[in-house]
Amino acid sequence: MAAAAIHSRDEALAGGLALAMHVLFLVLLVFGVSWQHKQADTAVIVDLWRDLPSVTPPRVEPPPPPPEVKPEPPKPVPKVEAKPPPKPEPAPVVKPDIALKEKQDRERKLKEQQEAAEKKKLAAEKAREAELEKKKRAEAEALKQKQAAEAEAKRVAAEQQKARDALAAQQAAAQAKVVDEYKRQISAKIRRFIVLPPNVSDAAQVEFEITVLPGGEVLGAKLRRAANSTPAYDAAVERAILRAQPLPLPPDPALMRQFRELNLVFRPKD
């Protein structure tokens, strides 16, 4: 076999193998690698508190709104059309020989007709008046109903407002309770870290202003007031504050405002 032939065969084989290699790698990369893994369950550390007040206050259901009183629209009063008086009948053609009798007859008839027309007219007037009266009464009724409904709505709104106020007050109370509880826990945690120096009088008292970060870290502790205290006790409390990090904070970030700056009083006897 000639060397050139061997060489060209080698080249072709090498090229094919190189291509196959890359295709294989690409396939592996595309189908073999799942880029987004599901989060595996990992162990978590939790703090257990026995009596933690619930942050959300018990829900107070606002009273259901009373069924709305809809003023009924006044029923349209059927209109009584005042009928125009009937037209007088055309006078019949009279014959001259019975003129007198006919004339008398006609006059009587005319009179009768006129009377009837008069009567009818009067009745129509009366009906119209009655209708007007009715309408007026209905309007007055509607107005009265409307006023009543408004008054009712006002009363309901006032009641709801009252309920809301009560709810807000309850929530505020619950929040205050939570805040107090956490303040108590914070100071209890700090107190656990206080190493009481010897020769501290029981009357010693020290107040610290602690600036707390949202994670529970202490940004700084400032000595506010030290009434008949020894510097040793102040220092011990400050050390305890720093060692008590992170301070327990409520999970609700809305309450964090009240924990930004804490004034805590410490006494050796507590």
Binding site: G15, L17, A18, L19, H22
Partner: peptide
Amino acid sequence: ASLFSWYYIFL
């Protein structure tokens, strides 16, 4: 570069 280097590797 990778293609060529593999080609030369096999060769």
